[in-house]
Amino acid sequence: MHNNSMKPLAYEACPQCDLLLNAEAIAVGIKAHCPRCGCLLYRPRHYSIERSFALSLTGLILFIPVNLLPLVGIVVLDNAQDASLWSGVASLYEEGLWGVAALVFLASLFFPFLKIMLSLLISGHLYFRKTHRHLSIWMRTLQHLDEWAMLEVYTLGIIVACVKLASRTELKFGFGLAAFIALLLVIVMLSSSLDEHLFWRRIDALNKSARKKT
């Protein structure tokens, strides 16, 4: 039983309706959909590992200005006031809404950071063909936290807040906002260039070759 199941089967199953499908090689640029429920099964990407590695490295660098610089500011009676990712969390916490503060912190800072770090670690290991005993755990974590990193939603929040403020005061936009938008683009591109099927196959191959050596 165990020996038999270690051999890869030439089947796929739809994750949303469990229809059994014959596994087929899909060319880049083609989307494979489930014929029964229409679920997107697989969409192969060009240079997925290389792109993910480059993008996550870029994202990590962009995280520094995004964290340090203010996003937007207003001027009230010669008194400048800024908002950054951190100050929003801090004001909510000071007000006693620690639950909301924690959620904003996780969705706008912690999970995006973790997503970039994990992508960097995984794609880096795959790129240099190095194995690591935690590769599978990293990959599983990355898949689960994907929807909890909400920078694109935060961007809409910034837009709505700016529109509300613009009617009353003058707004100032800093480099922080530019860095934030760049980080947002990097994260969106990272999500779309990461080919999960390819990553799992390569992780599996690395783990197997490591097992043979020992």
């Binding site: 207003i74 006031q81 007000e95 909301v100 904003v104 935060y154 929040g157």
Partner: peptide, 16 residues
């Protein structure tokens, strides 16, 4: 989450 993020920005910016 849009509303929550918008409020977190407004709360920190409009505090004079």
């Amino acid at each position: 989450m849009l509303d929550i993020f918008m409020i977190s920005i407004l709360v920190s910016i409009v505090s004079s």
